[in-house]
């Protein structure tokens, strides 16, 4: 479904991603595991169009999307839940969720009615968001904001969900909750690409994984096999 070939990307200086190739099959959950600064976020941002890759290409469902701006990538069905959540702080919880569904809502018509089914479904999944639907997103706790960011992504009815460090900065209790949400998405048949620092939870929830070090893939394979690999577990024990 997603195929990244020999991708190089970076910021002002050297490449932060140095020729990475990955693949995500439809219906699978793939993890990117690597330490701080390995280049996971850079990879994920360049495949979503937030940064323009310097070399290499990204194919999604057979189409080359490497040169598209982020809004067009999103409209083709890849939804990134960015590192650090990036909810729209001054807007309400419900407005944040509605924005997730923006491309299919009428710009001037009755957008709330058009989205009411999806909203109701989402509030059943995350009751806490339902209780706080008219509260400002900035006033939510970190965990609630992460749930909101994931909810916003789901509102897009994506074909591929990309989660960039959804556990960052959360208490262990909340991390467990986030991973529970991820595995229930997976059981529902969603295709997921997950970037994580901590190997054990990421490998437990995924089918395949890539271990990334300093901008390159150093190891890849079935998550179950990687989880038994002592070198991996020593380096990335979470």
């Amino acid at each position: 479904m997603l195929k990244v070939e020999n991708l190089c990307a970076g910021y002002s200086g050297d490449d932060a991603v140095r020729g990475i190739s990955i693949e995500v099959a439809e219906g699978s959950c793939v993890a990117l595991v690597g330490a701080n600064g390995a280049g996971k976020s850079t990879l994920v941002k360049s495949l979503c169009g937030l940064i323009v890759p310097r070399r290499g290409s990204v194919f999604f469902c057979g189409e080359n999307i490497s040169a598209l701006p982020a809004s067009e990538v999103a409209r083709r069905g890849i939804s990134l839940c960015p590192e650090g959540r990036h909810v729209f702080v001054p807007l309400s919880v419900e407005e944040n969720l509605l924005l997730g569904a923006y491309p299919r809502l009428p710009s001037f018509g009755r957008f709330r009615r058009a989205a009411s089914g999806d909203l109701q479904h989402l509030y059943e999944m995350f009751p806490r968001l339902g209780e706080r639907r008219s509260q400002q997103a900035g006033s939510l706790s970190g965990g609630e904001q992460q749930m909101l960011a994931i909810g916003r992504v789901l509102m897009a009815r994506p074909r591929l969900v990309v989660l960039d460090e959804p556990s960052m900065g959360l208490a262990p209790m909340l991390v467990k909750e986030v991973f529970k949400a991820i595995s229930s998405l997976r059981t529902a048949g969603m295709t997921i690409l997950l970037s994580e620092q901590f190997a054990n939870s990421a490998l437990a929830v995924s089918d395949r994984a890539y271990i990334i070090e300093r901008g390159s893939v150093v190891l890849e394979g079935a998550s179950a096999a990687l989880a038994k690999n002592p070198a991996v577990m020593a380096a990335y024990l979470g």
């Binding site: 937030l50 701006p69 809004s71 999103a74 729209f88 924005l99």
Partner: peptide
């Protein structure tokens, strides 16, 4: 919805792009 989208762009342009 157009107005809310403009507010979203004001608040966080990258996140707004990610919403399409």
């Amino acid at each position: 919805m157009a107005g809310i989208a403009v507010q979203a762009v004001s608040a966080d342009q990258d996140a707004a792009e990610l919403c399409g």
